[in-house]
Amino acid sequence: MQKESLVRHRILPVMAIVLIIVLAWYAGAYFMNAPFQRDLDRRANVTSTPVEFLQKTMAQPKPVVPAPHQVMQNLFENTVMRSLTSNRSLVYHGWVTLSSTMVGFAAGTLLGMLIAIGIVHVKTLDRSLMPWIIASQMVPILAVAPMVIVVLGAINITGLIPKAFISTYLSFFPVAVGMVKGLRSPELIQLDLMRTYNATAAQTFWKLRLPASIPYLFTSMKVAIAASLVGAIVGELPTGAVAGLGSKLLAGSYYSQTIDMWAALIAGSILAALLVALVGIIERIVEKSRGGRPA
């Protein structure tokens, strides 16, 4: 019964959407690659049946839009078929990106929490800090990232740290905003209650505000971890980094290896989905230990 409803309510809808996307993707691949294929055929004086033509648009080495099966094949070859240390392995590049994502995410979460605690407890910070935090996210990260890399590079900080710095820059924001909301989420009577006990600000924080903010923290961490991954990839783009999903994207665009690019892109999305799911799993475990009401 339960298994059946899982199939019907979770898997079927997802599969339906996937099917629609794949079909649209194939159609897109055909229409985007057809003009070039027609050009090729004309120059080589080949006439092909519609089916042959369709197959050819799906088998170009450097297509405008690679077909899903080309991307999947590339993805498969560059993950499962390669040794993990190979420069062509997407697992290797994914790991490089992942490691700076995680460092940046951890630092961003910590920074976001500290900022939120400051904003909630210090009135001056509440008024002065928030506009700057919001302004910080208005700056296009694509413009900031190269400057960060160059400036840090000038003082001999290269590799993981500059990329993690960009991840931190992107991920502290959702955590700070979410935590401010979470730390302020206790109702007035819950705060009054603490006052009747003559509780100190520290006791109110540890026993009321912080536990009340946990659901908000997890929601914002899901956004933050995806933003961290974007930050790490963006950090790899402008530097001519030799490793990481970002460098694969960049190399792909240099050499018009569109299939490589798409594969790296898909690898990045899979990584993001896994990271968000991981935060979700931790959230469920934590909520359960806090007596969370089963949904």
Partner: peptide, 30 residues
């Protein structure tokens, strides 16, 4: 400040992440 009274509000205002015994222990912890 000398904790001379206990206050019961209109709503129970129990902390949802604490069990009943932990909720009752809250003022004692503080």
């Amino acid at each position: 400040k000398s904790r001379s009274y206990g206050y019961v509000f209109q709503a129970p205002a129990l902390y949802p992440w604490r069990t009943i015994e932990k909720n009752i222990a809250l003022p004692l912890e503080i």
